[in-house]
């Protein structure tokens, strides 16, 4: 097995544990590069099908290319797509910095959809190398009834064993990509020929490294216009992946606050 095979196998193992252990399971599909790899891995885990719904928490402010991508591949991959609406920004905690407040709409939309549909577990495509608090996550991460993440009391995980039984009212976030890095995602996308939103590739000297809402996501300077060039760029870059995501940088604790409240 090479390094990508090992990453893939671990993710498949986690998907299968989640599907077996959790009664009402759904997967978040944000249409980004990680999310698409995640859908692909789910199809590998379940031999070509995704046996639970794919949730798109729609802020209504994504790029048009992303909506096109969603509609095309939801059909092509046979996904049970469920769209969740987000409340207007006026309903969100005003003490958050502006971009974080805007991003928190997604948390609110997610919580609403989970409550409506009664899911007890939701699969999300976060990775440890993205950001400091995500680096401390678990594969099976319990949340209280109100969606809160208690970073101080995370369950131990070792030897491929995860805590899957919790007090009533708890729900789980499952993170099958936790051990992947950004460059792993692109190498795997290349190897498996996984479709990708074209915004990741350079047009006019700029490309997106990370995709969020249009108004709080900025492109980077880059001439990488193919998968090969993106991988080559990442081999040597010293620019952080989420440097273009405004909500990470407004204040020291903004992202932790978002996550503690249930942001991915």
């Amino acid at each position: 097995m090479d390094a990508l095979d090992a990453l893939e196998s671990q993710s498949i193992y986690i998907f299968r544990e989640a599907f077996n252990r959790i009664d009402r399971l759904a997967m978040l599909w944000s249409l980004g590069k990680d999310s698409n790899v995640m859908v692909w891995l789910a199809r590998k885990a379940f031999f070509g099908r995704v046996p639970f719904p794919a949730l798109h928490i729609d802020t209504g402010k994504k790029f048009p290319e992303m909506y096109e991508f969603r509609d095309r591949y939801a059909a092509e991959w046979g996904l049970d797509l469920i769209r969740g609406e987000c409340p207007p920004v006026e309903e969100i905690d005003p003490s958050l910095p502006p971009a974080a407040r805007s991003a928190a709409r997604k948390t609110a939309g997610l919580k609403r959809l989970l409550a409506e549909r009664g899911y007890t577990g939701v699969v999300a495509g976060i990775r440890r190398d993205e950001e400091g608090t995500r680096a401390k996550e678990r594969y099976f991460s319990p949340r209280s009834g109100s969606g809160q993440w208690d970073v101080r009391e995370q369950p131990p995980e070792f030897w491929g064993q995860f805590n899957t039984v919790f007090p009533p009212g708890t729900h789980l976030r499952i993170h099958p990509l936790l051990h992947w890095t950004e460059i792993d995602i692109w190498r795997y996308t290349q190897r498996e020929r996984i479709p990708t939103v074209p915004l990741y590739f350079s047009r006019g000297g700029k490309r997106y490294r990370s995709l969020g809402d249009q108004d709080i996501t900025n492109p980077i300077d880059s001439d990488a216009s193919t998968l090969e060039e993106v991988i080559e760029e990442l081999e040597t870059t010293k620019i952080a992946e989420r440097s273009g995501r405004a909500m990470d940088h407004e204040s020291e604790d903004a992202f932790e606050r978002l996550r503690a409240d249930g942001y991915m």
């Binding site: 369950p155 030897w159 064993q161 805590n163 039984v165 919790f166 007090p167």
Partner: peptide, 12 residues
Amino acid sequence: FVLVDGYDISGG
């Protein structure tokens, strides 16, 4: 193996 006590993984 791991041991689970109530809701918690409590040893290995």
